[in-house]
Computed example of a mutant assay.
Amino acid sequence: MTSPLGVQLYSVRDEIGPDALRASLTRLAALGFTHAEPYDILSDTEGLAAALAASGLRATTAHSKITELDRDAVVTAATRLGIETIIVPWVRPDSIADRAGVTALAAAINEAAAFAAGYGIRVGYHNHDFEFAQKVDGVPAYELLVSLLDPAVVLELDTYWAAVGGADVTELIPRLGDRVRMLHVKHDGQNPFDIADVLPLATSLELPVVEVVVHEGDVWPLLEENAAYFGKLVNA
């Protein structure tokens, strides 16, 4: 059986309009991806559901600002799409510049997690670089945030952004242990670490998710390369 390999749909954000969504998802599936991670599940839930079904891709994770949006609408859409984990994708850097801000964010995520649990859905958090670059009481804001999150909240660690923010991901992932259930990964020569060495460190990994955000020209060759590269790693 093929091991799961996801792709964040933001990678093809310019090619998933109403007339291109089904074709793009089908093309991603043909490259070897098994899962799609949507970044918008509210604008056209039914269209997304139909495109996923037609392509054969599953969507078990999705980025959605459940701490800011209508929670009922978010969990309803997630249930329709078969999403098991709703991931908070981004917060304003200035909102977590001090302890009060980090504490407020943790409380909001914990509240959303308790709400979503009533529907059988988990909540997770996805980082960028600033959570590590910004220090609160001498420690990265990410470290404080994780310490305040309910253990039921899972982590989707973006390996590239964590490293850009100053984290040693080879030390961080084992220390976070089974909190890390998803990894954002890419293979494009920009990582300050060997991603092949990092993947095995996430011993409770459920889904590696390829995300290619910054690129020149056509993104599809990069996605094809990433699908082949990570497909070999996860199925080795």
Rank of each mutant, 00 (worst) to 15 (best):
R22G: 05
L145F: 05
A106E: 06
D14Y: 00
G118Q: 08
S64P: 13
D98M: 06
R92V: 00
P200W: 10
E211T: 06
V123W: 04
Q8D: 08
G82P: 03
G165N: 14
L81I: 01
R179D: 01
A107H: 07
F130H: 13
A228P: 00
T60Q: 04
S204T: 09
Y160W: 14
D14A: 13
D194P: 12
V88S: 08
I121M: 03
A112T: 09
L155I: 10
V123S: 04
E225T: 08
L5C: 12
G6L: 11
G124D: 01
D137I: 11
V154S: 14
D40V: 10
T159S: 12
T45Q: 01
V219Q: 10
H187Y: 09
L57Y: 00
G138K: 09
R181F: 02
Q134P: 04
A114I: 04
A59M: 02
D194R: 15
T79L: 09
A163Y: 09
L25Y: 01
G177C: 04
D14L: 02
Y142W: 15
P140A: 04
D158C: 06
L157I: 14
I16A: 01
Y160D: 11
G177K: 04
V154L: 13
N191G: 05
G17T: 08
T2I: 13
W90K: 12
P4Q: 15
L205I: 01
E225L: 02
T76G: 07
A114Q: 11
L233F: 02
N191M: 07
A62V: 05
D98F: 01
A196Q: 14
D19T: 14
L205Q: 05
W90F: 14
L81V: 02
T2N: 13
T61H: 15
T67L: 01
H63F: 08
H126N: 09
V219N: 10
E68S: 14
P200R: 15
R92A: 09
D72R: 15
G56L: 03
H128G: 09
S11P: 09
V212L: 09
R71L: 02
V154R: 11
S3Q: 15
H63R: 14
W220D: 10
I41P: 01
S64G: 13
S43N: 07
Y10S: 07
F193A: 12
R13V: 00
Y119T: 12
R122P: 05
L145N: 08
E111S: 15
L199K: 10
V214R: 15
G231A: 04
V213W: 11
A104W: 02
Y39S: 15
V102L: 04
E211D: 09
S204I: 10
D98I: 07
L145R: 09
A49Y: 01
Y125E: 03
S55Q: 06
R22Q: 11
P221F: 00
L155K: 04
G6M: 12
E68P: 00
A50H: 03
A23K: 08
P4H: 15
A20H: 13
K65C: 00
D44K: 09
Y119G: 05
F193L: 10
V234L: 12
V169L: 07
L233N: 03
F115C: 03
D19C: 06
H187M: 00
D40F: 06
A196T: 14
L69F: 01
E224D: 14
A51I: 03
A97K: 14
D40C: 05
T159D: 03
T34C: 04
D44Q: 13
A202G: 06
K135C: 00
R58K: 12
E211G: 07
R122V: 11
L69P: 00
S147P: 03
H187D: 07
A107V: 02
